[in-house]
Every structure is written in C-alpha cells, then in structure tokens.
Amino acid sequence: MLISIVAGARPNFMKIAPIIDAIEEEEGISYRLIHTGQHYDKKMSGDFFEQLGIPEPHVNLEAGGGTQAEQTAAIMLKFEKELLANPSELVVVVGDVTSTMACAITAQKLCIPVAHVEGGIRSGDWSMPEEINRMVTDSITNYFFTTSEVANANLRRSGVTDDRIFFVGNTMIDTLLKQMPKLSKPYFWEELGLEKKQYLVLTLHRPSNVDDASQLKGLLKVLEDSEIQVPVVFPVHPRTCKNLEVFDIQLHNVKTVEPMSYLEFNYLVQNAMGVITDSGGITEETTVMGIPCMTLRDSTERPETCTLGTNVLLGSNPAALREALAKLQAGEWKKGTIPPLWDGKTAERIVGHISDIFKVEREKARLVF
C-alpha cells in the first residue's frame, strides 16, 4: 500500500515526523513524502527536517510565495502532476495550512481518498485563513484523525459518521515528547543573561496583532512597562519584524531575536516563567510542559488547552494582558492537566487505523469481484 504524506509549512513538519517513524515500523505500508514548498527558507523548513530526523522528501513542489490564491493554485497544479506520476491509495494531510486544503482538493478530484490528521478543530473565526482551510478540507475528507472529543463533536455536528472518526491524540506532542531530551540552549542565552524561570517568551504573527500600529504598540508597551522585572524574549516572525521598523517601535525590555530552530525554541519555552502568543500550536506544547500561557486572540481552535491545560484566552485588549501578567507574578496561575491521549503514541494509533481501514476496503473489493 502506497500513501502520499503532505507537508508544506513549519507546523506540518512536527506532525508528520512521528507518522513517518510509525510507517517505517509497519509492514505493508510505503509512503511518498511530498513537500509543497509553502515554507521555503532554511529556518522555516530545512532545520525542521534535520532536527526532527525527517527523511529528505521524495519531491519538493517548490510552490511557495505569492498570494493565498496564487499559492493554492500552484500547489494544486504541481500536486496533481505528482499524483498522476505516482498514484497512491491514500493522501494524508495534516493541520490547517494552505497545502492541507489544496492537496485534499486535488486528491479528491483524482478519486483518491483523503485522511486529515488534526481534523475537526474549529475556532469559529472566518477571518482566519486557517479556519477556511479546516472547513474546506474536512468537507471533503474521508477519514479523520482527531486530537480531542471537542473535535469529534464538531465533526458529528457537520454530519460525519462515527465510523470515519478516529480519536487518536496529538502527533505534535509525539514529536515534543521524543525531542525533549534533545532540547538545546539557544545561541543568545548567555548574551541576554537568561536564567531559568526568570524570563517570558513572546510570539506574535497574526495580522490582527501585528499589522495595526496601535494594536502592536499597545501590546508591546504593556510588556515594556510590566511590573514583572524580567526580560521578554521575542523571536520575531519576518512580517512582524518588518512592521516593527515601519511603525518605528523601539524596544528595551523586549529582546528581539531571529526565528529559532525547533530544539532551541522549545528549550526556551520549557524554561520560561510564561509564554505570550497568538499561535495555536504553542498552546499545546505549553500545556504538556506545564508552562503558563497567555493567548492574544478572541478565539481558539484548541479549547482543551484552556479547559484542561495551562492556556488562558485573553483576547486582544492590552489591558487583559496587563492583568494576566499581574496574576502570573502573584503565583496565581492555574495548574493544568494533559488532555487524553496526548501521550506520545498518537502516530502508532494513526498508522494502525490506516492499516485496518485498507484491510477492510480490500476485503470488500475481493467480495465484489
């Protein structure tokens, strides 16, 4: 059995690594790894393949750059050629990036079934490109591998039957748990004089936070003026970096650094006093590590990080951030727990289900003929 595994952007790489490991332990399944090239610079792509032990892709579609529509079209055109040249029995897509949606559509147009790893999650915010990607992908997916009972319920409400839903856990946590012993001190640790539990980590990249000058300045001013007298380490997304210059924002307590490798970034998170972010994936990692997390968004597609984990949804009002920092300083942050099946064995369950699904399908075909 040949399956195609699609990765296109930084969040995907953490999710496919354990799936590939599990496939290599399973008899009767082979794979082609397709890198769409959605993220194409070294820090956003190459480092992850090296550090996570992901083999070289069988093909890189080199479809990065351009607008959302241009990128979607480029991925679909090139992925169609890949599937025609190398027909597979299943296309596995992960997460919610442009590549996820584009490759799911392409596969279905060629009558190849699709499995969506991390299916069913929803933020309810249609202004996020990721939410559109999730909804379109799930509307044409055959098999759903889910991270939570909330995702299962979302799928059932949309009409998906239970025989297509497989609650397996979170492959990103598989990667985190495997890589924890290898986490490495970032290059700037001594230069910034960092000490364990004596700094905060900040990540910002969503347009609602970084493309509006007053919003970005308001959030950063809270961190500059905070009564918590610890440095704030800010790995800066390329678009955010550009806006800091355009808006002429000067920082002192907030220390900007270049984008980091997986092992360095998670070392930074693991040893932080707390994390402030507008990312989704980081809220999962902080939940497993037990690190206080403040999310600067009005909605989240990962509610289990709030109901069970260490994450708190603050919205985008800088005043809410100020209050949350005071709570953290007072030692009043909630103690989280780890969601069910976030145990490092998700990929094994996924590959086991894929094997079972195709045994059943082949038996059906044998009986028909």
Rank of each mutant, 00 (worst) to 15 (best):
F247S: 11
L223Q: 02
L251P: 00
E227Q: 01
P238W: 13
K221R: 11
K221V: 04
N253H: 03
L219H: 08
D225R: 01
L219D: 01
F247K: 06
Q229G: 05
P235A: 15
T256A: 10
D225A: 15
E227W: 01
L223E: 10
T256N: 10
D225I: 06
L244F: 04
P238F: 14
V222W: 00
K242Y: 08
K242M: 12
L220W: 03
V232W: 02
K221Q: 13
P231F: 07
E245H: 14
P238N: 10
P238T: 13
P238R: 10
L251I: 02
V233P: 02
I249P: 04
C241P: 00
Q250C: 12
V236D: 07
V222G: 00
Q229H: 08
Q229M: 08
R239T: 11
Q250G: 07
P238Y: 09
R239K: 11
F247V: 14
R239P: 11
L223T: 03
E245T: 11
I249M: 09
H237I: 12
V246P: 00
V254A: 08
L220D: 05
E224N: 05
I228V: 12
P231T: 03
V246W: 01
F234T: 05
N253C: 09
L223F: 08
F247H: 09
P231H: 06
N253P: 02
V254F: 05
I228A: 04
D248Q: 15
V232S: 03
V233R: 03
V254Q: 03
I228S: 04
Q250K: 15
E245Y: 07
K221Y: 10
H237V: 13
E227A: 14
V230E: 03
E227N: 14
S226M: 10
I228T: 09
F234C: 06
F247D: 12
I249H: 00
H237F: 14
H237A: 15
V254D: 02
V233F: 08
T256C: 15
N243R: 15
V233Q: 07
V233G: 04
P238Q: 12
V236E: 04
T256V: 14
N253V: 11
F234H: 01
E245P: 01
V232M: 09
C241H: 14
N243C: 11
K221T: 13
C241R: 00
I249C: 12
V230D: 02
N243V: 08
P235W: 05
L220A: 06
L244C: 12
F234Q: 04
V246F: 08
I228D: 09
V236K: 02
C241N: 08
C241M: 13
V254W: 07
K255Y: 06
E224I: 12
V232H: 04
D248C: 09
L223N: 03
F247L: 01
V233I: 14
L223M: 13
V232G: 08
T240Y: 09
K242C: 13
V230Y: 09
K242A: 15
V222R: 07
K221D: 15
I249G: 14
K255V: 09
N253E: 07
H237M: 15
Q250H: 13
C241F: 02
V232E: 04
